[in-house]
Amino acid sequence: MLEIKGLAAVIDNKTILNGIDLVVPTGEIHAIMGPNGSGKSTLAYVLAGREGYEVTAGSATYDGHDLLGIEPEERAALGLFLAFQYPVELPGVNNANFLRTALNAQRRARGEAELNAVQFLKLARAQAKALSMPDDMLKRNVNVGFSGGEKKRNEVLQMAVLRPKLAILDETDSGLDIDALKIVADGVNALRGPDFSAVVITHYQRLLDHIVPDRVHILSNGRIVKSGGPELAHALEAGGYAAIVPEGASEAA
């Protein structure tokens, strides 16, 4: 279970998160929606441990572990996965080697046996196939020369191979055509189960037609201003943020 209490964070002396309270029980998928600049990506980065953010108040725990006090790689070994809004290119780093290094580093940290090259390739190829991705994607350098859609699919492939327990998807749907969107959704839905939870950050209702969330939260000015069921996303689609976000919320921030 992910538990965030009163989380506040600043970057370059600017307050971005302003007291986030959020609980994602194990087995559930929650969506976070909100306008540009509301703090969605910052929340994702703070949870994953990116440098540059200063947490000024609050806590975030996963299954009782204090996430904010440990390194990004330790969070990953606990089962946290961030699908990046802008996946990073790694020239000179082979995609398959990258993924195998990551998987084995996590397995080592958890005291599990590492996979050899043959075992790994079998797993990675099977996952690539299940996601309708060409094998060729594994042979290329990480995200180098990938189209926007390929980069997002590569994030989903990593997620499928690493099998996280808590996935945070940061606008994984942006810039995707409908076919790619379905592949991304299939990747998440394949992991769905009693031990898997996810936080799906998105601007649009569209992804939530394919990944139906248990709860939807609206983020505005660094704070969750409204929570509800999947119907909240539909209301948002129909009326826009102005209709949903109470006027007091923006004034308070």
Binding site: E73, A76, G92, V93, F98, A102, L162
Partner: peptide, 24 residues
């Protein structure tokens, strides 16, 4: 820094991540 964080977010310890980037 972004490349380093990307590797670490996937579970690769910092020293190993630095080594991977230098080799690349």
């Amino acid at each position: 820094g972004d490349q380093l964080f990307y590797l670490r977010s996937r579970g690769v310890p910092e020293a190993e991540a630095r080594a991977i980037l230098v080799r690349a």
